[in-house]
Design a protein around this nucleic acid. Structure first.
Lengths: 150, 150
DNA sequence: TATTGTTATACTCTATAACTATA
DNA sequence: TATAGTTATAGAGTATAACAATA
């Protein structure tokens, strides 16, 4: 009995719990999940399209559309890249950055409630283990670098 | 310093990791995530539409569409409810049940890899804490009961 | 009248293929 | 030629409103 047989499915249920709470926080800020993640990714500094596609796990056309819709809402803007006239970066507008930071704060405050049922000492152990297992964000955003893009 | 300030965002990144791996397993079984969850929910016994909507966190029209698409693929079918002629249940077809069970097994095997970086003893502690915090599945499916529906 | 589930409509998200402009 | 990003197209998912049949 090396691992609990249903642990994989417990993890799926955990991720669903997290995603539902996260989606609720996004909705409270009048954002879709994808828009919120984009906003969190550019809340401190602009990022190139390729980097964002990688970060958000989207193919390039998907990111283009997401940026379009988010631009339309006045939350981000495209800025030309001086070195390479094909490329562009995505920057948060003042409003977008503010909302992105508010999201980030709200997530930090409200999401851990999921583990309210655990005694404080267990929660601290859990935090340490999860943080150790998946590491810290490379440069600020809510997301993890990943393979899916393109 | 009660809780790590970024723990909420670490949880979001964890859930993204889990969801991406889960989506990959679904794709390996030629399923979308929503179809896989529907299949897991009916892999052992039929379930009513209301129960499924609650379980999957969908509003009724969303579930109707999901069931339509999954019926079209020959994985589930609608069965009339004898007591109430308005109502119906969703049952897996033999193929659908088989795929649902295979998914469930595959998730149990492949998902915990996420924590491969942790020493074995830490992994066991983590499993216990997560399982204690979110409990076991009520009746078998991969999902958790939740509020969003309708 | 209230409830179950579907249909209609609209928008977001995601994928693939084809395209434009630049390198 | 290769690369960055967009446009075109299609399908899945999700929400609200209106509807049908039954309770």
């Amino acid at each position: 009995m090396t691992a609990a047989p249903g642990f994989g499915n417990t993890l799926v249920r955990l991720s669903v719990l997290i995603q539902r709470r996260y989606a609720q926080i996004c909705a409270d800020h009048d954002l879709t999940v994808a828009q919120a993640q984009l906003l969190c990714a550019v809340k401190d500094e602009p990022r190139g399209m390729s980097e964002l596609a990688q970060l958000l796990g989207l193919a390039k056309p998907g990111l283009s559309g997401l940026v379009d819709r988010t631009v339309r809402r006045g939350l981000v803007e495209r800025v030309a890249c001086p070195n390479d006239r094909r490329a562009c970066s995505v920057a948060g507008t003042p409003m977008g950055k503010e909302i992105g930071r508010a999201m980030y704060r709200d997530v930090a405050i409200r999401l851990p409630d999921i583990f309210d049922g655990l005694p404080e000492s267990d929660r601290r152990v859990l935090e340490e283990l999860v943080s150790a297992a998946i590491g810290s964000p490379v440069s600020g955003p809510c997301l993890e670098d990943g393979p899916p893009a393109d």
